[in-house]
Design a binder for these strands. Structure first.
Length: 258
DNA sequence: TTGATTGTTACCGG
DNA sequence: TCCGGTAACAATCA
């Protein structure tokens, strides 16, 4: 479910609902009792997203670190608090808000030092104002890896997942197997700018939208070629390949190998 | 029951 | 040192 926009959206929403409140952190299924005990009843002082990582900071100077992985979900509900739905690992209750987190691959309590080291590993985040595009350009230009691999490497650029990878490369007419070194500065600048726009659109709408078709229609197509059979531009048959174990799609006509 | 899935890390071999 | 492949982990749905 989550690419970068999901996490940043959650951070924004949860800030309004949880910050400044005393928070009860619990593990309804008893699957994360260590974190729950440490953070019980402290005030939430900030919530921030870095790429796909989410950090809730508490006044006891500890962070709750969440990464949803492939299957994780965040559900926010209003009081009264209901029985948890599915395998809820952590529940945050404060103000009139209840946040349930299920299926995360990372769900841990961090101190300041651990937080600082984690942040260093994360590349420029397309959804953060402080993101440095030149770091991304340089990493790609020096690399012999395929751009399809590099876009998913969160130390190169943070926030892009499997669906955005396919869609962004199609929009820029770049074959996913093109080697990083072979891309021009102009191509990389367009790639960065487009990715940034798409992630912001995703955050606004709370869903991935990469088509320019009217997004208000309920049945409007929201993706161009991901999981599709034909290219919406040239009608060519879309090809499916695996890159680093994940499916990638491309149009052989619109995305010639560079 | 099986397979697929909007993710990441560790480890190994070339 | 870089890059690709594999396994492991997570939860849900068709």
């Amino acid at each position: 479910m989550p690419e970068g926009h999901t996490i940043h959206r959650a951070a924004r929403d949860h800030k309004k609902a949880l910050m400044g409140h005393r928070i009860i952190v619990s593990s309804p299924q008893g699957r994360f009792s260590d974190g729950a005990k440490i953070l019980d009843m402290h005030v939430c002082s900030s919530i921030e997203a870095f790429g796909k990582h989410l950090f809730y900071k508490f006044t006891c100077d500890m962070y709750l670190h969440i990464h949803l992985g492939l299957f994780g979900r965040i559900r926010k509900t209003k009081a009264p608090v209901m029985a948890p739905l599915g395998q809820v690992r952590v529940r945050l209750v404060g103000g009139d808000c209840c946040v349930d987190i299920s299926g995360p691959t990372i769900c841990a309590v961090r101190n300041q030092d651990e937080f600082d080291r984690l942040i260093l590993r994360i590349g420029p985040d397309l959804l953060r104002d402080d993101a440095d595009p030149y770091y991304f350009f340089n990493r790609v230009k020096r690399s012999r890896a395929r751009i399809g691999t590099l876009l998913m490497d969160q130390s190169v650029v943070a926030g892009i997942g499997n669906i955005y990878r396919t869609e962004i490369l199609w929009r820029q007419n770049i074959h996913p197997c093109t080697v990083g070194k072979d891309l021009s500065g102009a191509q990389l600048k367009k790639l960065w700018d487009d990715a940034k726009v798409l992630l912001h659109v995703g955050m606004q709408n709370n869903r991935i939208i990469t088509t320019s078709i009217d997004i208000k229609g309920k049945n409007a197509e929201r993706l161009n070629i991901f999981n599709k059979t034909h290219c919406p531009l040239c009608s060519e048959t879309i090809e499916k390949i695996e890159i680093n174990g994940r499916s990638a799609f491309f149009c052989p006509q619109c995305q010639p190998i560079g």
